[in-house]
């Protein structure tokens, strides 16, 4: 618990009875929500640490793999997009465009996929003690964020060599883009983790949907293609908050690396990008509140289904 000043615990019956005299009789059910999570920060930290260390235990190179994997991935993009397909010919630094987008989309898909399974996977812990169960989808988000750091290092090196010089707008775009993804992914993880308890097919559905997401956002292709093909009908495409977030992240990392930023923005960024972004963020927060309500509504029926 959160007792910072740990009181001396009673050693005999009389002093315990005296100490308990002004403790109220309360329901043993856990306090949920943000308050419950904040009360259990230490447990949350341990849960995240467990997930992080469990990923590479038993491997000789250990955490080094979390750098090797994205590095080879990045080199592959350069090879495919610049050398093979020649897309780099008309689009500057397309590998950065792809890599920065894949990172943020990966944060989303990983959080939702792991979050969906988090409650079922931790059923043994859940049944051991009364604790806020929202902690598990929340921990999934933190673990996914943690795994992003090595990719940021690789991206940082690439940005250094391309002379990335962001202005304030670019930085705001990056924060907004990541903000949308985190809140939106957390909302879905919270709601779907309950759904997974009652209907184990949820995880499979999530996997299918995640596959579609990779093509529903301007990641492997530039937004300029979408703008050209769907001229005048791009609103539907941009109603997807993930697409907005990806574009915002590109505005942050990719646009400042191009030689003529104005031209890049005109060609590859939609109108009202920031307005769309703030609307998406507000929408994600509303969704998070709804997800929390759904979670509270069903969590009492959850333990016996695990």
């Amino acid at each position: 618990m959160t007792d910072l000043l740990e009181p001396q615990r009673p050693r005999d019956a009389a002093s315990r009875a005296a100490a308990l005299a002004d403790v109220p009789l309360v329901s043993p059910a856990p306090t949920g929500g943000i308050r419950g999570i904040l009360q259990h920060r230490y447990l949350l930290k341990l849960l995240v640490k467990r997930e992080v260390t469990a990923r590479y235990t038993g491997s000789f190179l250990g955490m080094l793999w979390s750098y090797i994997t994205p590095l080879t991935q990045f080199l592959m993009y350069i090879f495919i997009f610049t050398l093979l397909m020649g897309r780099g010919g008309n689009i500057e630094h397309f590998a950065i465009h792809v890599f920065a987008s894949i990172m943020v989309v990966g944060l989303f898909t990983e959080t939702v996929a792991a979050g969906t399974r988090s409650i079922v996977r931790n059923s043994a812990l859940l049944q051991k003690s009364a604790m806020p169960r929202e902690m598990f989808p929340f921990a999934s988000l933190l673990v996914s964020i943690y795994h992003l750091w090595p990719e940021f290092v690789i991206l940082g090196i690439a940005l250094f060599f391309t002379g990335w010089a962001p202005d304030l707008t670019a930085l705001v775009a990056g924060v907004l883009g990541y903000g949308i993804i985190m809140v939106f992914a957390l909302a879905l993880a919270v709601a779907l983790s309950v759904s997974q308890v009652f209907l184990r097919d949820t995880g499979n559905i999530v996997a299918v949907v995640n596959n579609f997401i990779r093509f529903g956002v301007p990641m492997m292709y530039p937004y300029s293609i979408v703008a050209e093909r769907f001229r005048g009908h791009t609103d539907l495409y941009l109603a997807n908050p993930i697409a907005d977030a990806v574009l915002l992240v590109q505005r942050c990392f990719w646009v400042p690396t191009t030689s003529d930023q104005k031209a890049t923005i005109a060609e590859s960024m939609p109108d009202h990008l920031f307005t769309r972004g703030f609307v998406a963020l507000a929408g994600a927060f509303v969704l998070l509140v709804i997800a929390q309500r759904i979670f509270n509504r069903f969590e009492n029926k959850m333990p016996e289904r695990l």
Binding site: M1, L20, V23, P24, L25, V26, S27, P28, A29, P30, L126, Q127, K128, S129, A130, N300, P303, E304
Partner: peptide, 21 residues
């Protein structure tokens, strides 16, 4: 222990609970 919620009725406890379930 508070791990399961009853469908009807109420449970109240006083103080910290440790369980070996």
């Amino acid at each position: 222990q508070g791990v399961m919620a009853p469908d009807a009725g109420s449970v109240r406890t006083r103080g910290r609970i440790a369980g070996l379930i």
